[in-house]
Structure formats: structure tokens, C-alpha cells
């Protein structure tokens, strides 16, 4: 399912998320200047770029925290440009925000339960068990305050929390940021596992090498515009990308 799709297949599959000519501005400062992109079901798509390129702004706009000034966002057949953030989650779009943003003064289990907030009073037992299986450390410390976890553990919690709403698309914003190399490897492995399990992922990463290795398709942003796009393999091979983003050359 996650095998690379050839071009004809790409066109024939209905995109889960399609963004057309998206513009986002902070007051007079335009941060995203006409981005168009697609995420197909089951794909892992990476969004790369330097700081200030507009990656986080794009994700925050997709999840409704920011309002686009122009452009369209279609997700699973629904227009999202004017939908408030708390309704977008219900459509199946989960956003695991930059810098983790767990609720520090609540327990791990409470954090996870909040992740499933939109599911109302359903029994969350199976989902909690699944989360604890995926991240055993969370299970061991489930009644501790989340603020006491280490950075990597908090990132695990943030991912597990985002998965609790059983999203159709998981957006991860720099999951490896500020982590030790070992922890970074572990988180990236988790992302790979999620991908293998069939989760559709939109991944923003600084670590371009790792992201491209994971991604079926990738877009490279520069000052609010897409400058290069292609399959992960293509971009890994692309001379310009190697020079500009992979620190080679």
C-alpha cells in the first residue's frame, strides 16, 4: 500500500488532502505565498525547508489555528478554509504540534484521554492499551504528570495523543526537534512504523535526510513557496536539494 505509486496511479487516486494556492499572512507579512500540494491516502508526505520557510505556518493553517488569506484546502471531500480548529479534528485531521505542547500539569493518561476528546464518552481502553504497547514507557508512568517526562518521552506522548482520535491524516511538526540523537532515531523509527501500519502522514522535518528516506513524496519550501517537489528518492538524488538542504557539495 505504501509502495511508491507511479504517475498514472497518482492521478487516478482521490487525494485525501489537497491544497490549492494557499496564502497565509500575519497582518501585512505574508508567510505562505501560494502553496499547492496533495497527500494521497496511505502516503507519507514530507515538507522540508529552512526556518521561516512557512512549514509550521502551513500546518497551523491546515489544522485551523490560522486562517488562510486565499486558497483552498480540501480534506476528504470537505472544504476546511473556514472551519474552526476544534471542528477540523473531527474531520479526522490530527496535528501533533511543534515543540510537543503536551499538557504538563496533567497525567499521561489524562493527556491521552484529551487526545480522544472528540470521541465523547466511548470506552478508550483498547486505544490506551495500544498506546502503551507502542510506547511502554508511557504505560509504566501513566499516572505521572506529563511535565515530568523527558523531551523524547514527551514527544512520544504527543504522537500517542494525536493518534487517540484515530485520525485519517496525522500531521507531525518536527517530531525530532531538540532530541538527543538516540531519541531522534527512536522517534523516526516510530514514524516509520506508523507509516508501515498504513497511517497517512504529513511530516515536517528539519532532518531532511531522514525525512526523505521515509517520504513517498516531498515538497521543499523556501520563503513561503514550493521550490522543489518530487518523490523522496528523486529529491534525495537531486543535486540542488543535496547542496541546499542536505549540507553536501
Amino acid at each position: 500500500m505504501t509502495a511508491l505509486l507511479n504517475d498514472e496511479a497518482l492521478l487516478s487516486v482521490e487525494a485525501l488532502l489537497s491544497v490549492e494556492a494557499l496564502h497565509v499572512a500575519y497582518g501585512r507579512v505574508e508567510a505562505v505565498k501560494g502553496i499547492s500540494m496533495r497527500v494521497l491516502p496511505g502516503q507519507t508526505v514530507a515538507l522540508l525547508g529552512a526556518n521561516g520557510a512557512g512549514k509550521t505556518t502551513t500546518l497551523r493553517t491546515l489544522s485551523g489555528l490560522l486562517r488562510p488569506t486565499a486558497g483552498t484546502i480540501r480534506f476528504a471531500g470537505q472544504s476546511l478554509e473556514r472551519v474552526p480548529a476544534h471542528h477540523i479534528v473531527r474531520a479526522g485531521l490530527a496535528h501533533c504540534p511543534e515543540a510537543r505542547r503536551i499538557f504538563p500539569r496533567m497525567t499521561i493518561e489524562e493527556n491521552l484521554r484529551l487526545g480522544a476528546f472528540i470521541r465523547g464518552n466511548e470506552d478508550l481502553g483498547p486505544d490506551l492499551r495500544q498506546a502503551y504497547e507502542r510506547f511502554p514507557i508511557l504505560g509504566e508512568r501513566h499516572d505521572q504528570m506529563a511535565g515530568l517526562l523527558s523531551g523524547g518521552e514527551q514527544q512520544m506522548l504527543a504522537i500517542a495523543r494525536a493518534l487517540m482520535c484515530r485520525p485519517r491524516l496525522l500531521m507531525l511538526d518536527e517530531p525530532s526537534m531538540g532530541l538527543s540523537p538516540i531519541m531522534m532515531q527512536q522517534i523516526l523509527r516510530t514514524v516509520a512504523e506508523l507509516k508501515d501500519a498504513g497511517t497517512t502522514i504529513l511530516l515536517v522535518e528539519q532532518n531532511a535526510q531522514a525525512a526523505l528516506a521515509l517520504a513517498d513524496y516531498a515538497y521543499v519550501l523556501e520563503t513561503g513557496r514550493i521550490v522543489v517537489e518530487g518523490t523522496g528518492a528523486e529529491l534525495l538524488a537531486d543535486e540542488r536539494v543535496r547542496v541546499a538542504y542536505l549540507g553536501e557539495g
Binding site: A25, Y26, G27, V29, A31, A50, N51, G52, A53, T56
Partner: peptide, 23 residues
């Protein structure tokens, strides 16, 4: 609004200095 958003932007995306000049 622009100023506030500018600050937000700085916090959001530019906590490292390299993008600042550009913005």
C-alpha cells in the same frame, strides 16, 4: 495585528536567528 502576528511568527518559526533578517 501585523505586529502581534510578527511576534508570533518569530516565536513559531524563527526561534533561531537565521530566518529573522529575511523576515
Amino acid at each position: 495585528a501585523a505586529e502581534e502576528a510578527y511576534e508570533e511568527l518569530v516565536v513559531d518559526e524563527l526561534d533561531r536567528s537565521d530566518g529573522l533578517d529575511e523576515l
